[in-house]
């Protein structure tokens, strides 16, 4: 009765394959040529957690970035008092998944903060990030007072010659930058480099001195991101960076991971439908040698999860 016949064999195999393929990047459409290591891993067609798990697996797992006992700082975008459906902030489920993976990889402490534009307590709450992080075992840190920041000199920059930078970020072992892909009235798009404005105290200096150049200068702050994850599960298409209503958001189900902020920003610009060279901060960063602006020189692993 229990013997394996051909029909049963085929059926079981197909079911197992489907089960493995579910969320497993190895069985997804082979959309990359060659082997790793990858500069960028791009994942699409799934919820933020599934996208992240496939993406981080392709980069060798969180253990590649985090060692036992290390202090990790995660910097999502939590700038606005907006719910996740208006994608002005990073997706809370994604942030929670990163926290969990860091802790699983042995991180001693995982700290999350942002220098918000709206009232910080309400932004932390409404974004859903505070609860998600705490539930996942991370710590939400404040960034609302000047006393949380420390003055650092930035010798390699062009305009931002010194800045007050958040102390936790200067003090951490691993720094993970998690922007959300969104439209921006001033910089046109808000991406990896732009997201780093949230570790600096004085933002008016950026706007007053040359926003794009200052954003590019952020590639040279003392603690460079060890990993960047662009959340494009929902993309803010218009009225950025804070968005007005849910209609401004587009459910796109993308995510891009990598170390090179410039290359990631270039890829995200294309995903949004813009040319990288249209963005001043990408141009400036390229000129300063902060990263690769030409995506043809970047090794990209492309993963489409099966629905």
């Amino acid at each position: 009765m229990n013997s394996i016949n051909r029909r049963r064999f085929i059926g079981t195999t197909a079911a197992s394959a489907a089960a493995i393929a579910w969320h497993n990047p190895l069985f997804a459409a082979p959309e990359a040529v060659g082997d790793g290591p990858w500069d960028i891993v791009a994942v699409r067609n799934g919820d933020p957690v599934a996208l992240f798990e496939a993406g981080i697996a392709a980069l060798g797992g969180m253990e590649t970035f985090v060692s036992k006992g290390q202090k990790v700082v995660i910097k999502p975008n939590i700038a606005w008092d907006k719910p996740p459906e208006i994608p002005a902030n990073t997706n809370p489920d994604l942030v929670a998944a990163i926290v969990r993976h860091c802790l699983k990889a042995g991180a001693g402490k995982v700290i999350v903060f942002d220098h918000t534009c709206h009232n910080w307590e309400r932004s932390y709450k409404t974004s859903g990030i505070a609860k998600a992080v705490v539930d996942a075992g991370g710590v939400m840190d404040p960034a609302n007072l000047e006393s949380h920041y420390q003055m650092v000199d930035l010798p390699k920059t062009k305009l931002l010659k010194s800045a007050l930078v958040h102390k936790e970020m200067l003090d951490c072992d691993v720094f993970i930058n998690v922007p959300v892909l969104k439209h921006h009235g001033g910089a046109k798009l808000s991406l990896c480099m732009k997201n780093l404005m949230g570790v600096v105290w004085d933002r008016r200096f950026f706007h007053n001195s040359g926003l794009d150049q200052c954003i590019a200068d952020l590639c040279f702050i003392p603690k460079k991101p060890d990993l960047n994850i662009i959340d494009a599960y929902r993309i803010l298409r218009k009225n950025g960076p804070q968005g007005r209503a849910k209609e401004d958001g587009e459910l796109a189900q993308y995510q891009m991971l990598g170390r090179d902020m410039v290359a990631l920003d270039a890829a995200a610009a294309k995903l949004f439908g813009m040319k990288p060279e249209e963005l001043g901060f990408i141009r400036f960063a390229g000129e300063m040698g902060a990263g690769e602006t030409n995506l043809e020189n970047v090794k990209i692993k492309r993963i489409t999860l099966e629905a």
């Binding site: 699409r44 298409r237 007005r244 209503a245 849910k246 209609e247 995903l271 489409t304």
Partner: peptide
């Protein structure tokens, strides 16, 4: 009056980058 739903992006044949 503003829309209370996200728009949905159709998954492209190729990655846009």
């Amino acid at each position: 009056p503003l829309g209370q739903k996200n728009t949905i992006r159709e998954i492209e044949e190729e990655f846009p980058f």
